[in-house]
């Protein structure tokens, strides 16, 4: 029951993260969703992912978002969504409904009996599935290289053209289309 309440709370947080007008609030709502997800995972019994979710998902990622938002500025543009809301709603409800029907029609989630000895998570993660981890290292390497390529030059560039990273401070003209005051919230 408790987990059900948490689930509802997580979804509420997610909805708020999308609806929030300010990006910073979005990021905070997302952090909230993350923290609650961590709690949910804890209740499920997956303690370690809960901890990681709390530290990485709620902590690190939020910091990253806030960092990015502070650099890019709180650009409060708002406008009609390009895709009609009704169509979007229809599609998403359709997708979720189909999946839900599918899961409901199915004879419950069968629980495959595991005949092998239960191992610990650290054993699974570090030994049994070490390959996953190794590939992740490659992935992180690729990501770091890419990020370096995307934003890593700034320090060098700064020497010559300090103007280039001024975006952080400047607020570009806000694109506010007429008569969409009530649409400020997405």
């Amino acid at each position: 029951m408790f987990s059900g309440l948490i689930a509802i709370a997580i979804i509420m947080c997610a909805v708020q993260a999308i609806r929030a007008a300010r990006l910073l609030s979005s990021a905070v709502w997302l952090a909230g969703a993350s923290a609650l997800t961590a709690l949910w995972l804890y209740i499920l019994g997956a303690q370690q992912p809960a901890v990681i979710e709390l530290s990485v998902g709620a902590g690190l990622v939020t910091v990253l978002f806030i960092f990015a938002i502070s650099i890019s500025g709180e650009e409060a543009f708002t406008a009609y969504p390009r895709v009609p809301r009704k169509l979007a709603l229809l599609l998403v409800v359709g997708a979720v409904a189909l999946l839900a029907v599918d899961l409901a029609v199915a004879s419950g989630m069968p629980r495959a009996v595991d005949e092998r000895a239960v191992s610990t998570l650290s054993d699974t993660f570090w030994n049994a599935r070490a390959l996953d981890m190794l590939v992740q290292m490659v992935l992180i390497f690729a990501g770091v290289l890419g990020v370096l390529n995307l934003i890593g030059h700034e320090e060098i560039k700064e020497v010559e053209t300090p103007g280039e990273i001024q975006i952080a401070q400047t607020h570009l003209p806000q694109v506010v289309e007429p008569e969409n005051e009530e649409l400020l919230r997405v």
């Binding site: 969504p81 390009r82 895709v83 599609l91 998403v92 997708a95 189909l98 029907v101």
Partner: peptide, 22 residues
């Protein structure tokens, strides 16, 4: 060229494929 519309293709495709398979 609109990312949101591109996503419509993905979600719509998913709905279609799942519906057909079901």
């Amino acid at each position: 060229g609109q990312l949101n519309w591109n996503m419509v293709g993905i979600v719509g495709g998913f709905v279609l494929v799942l519906a057909v398979l079901m």
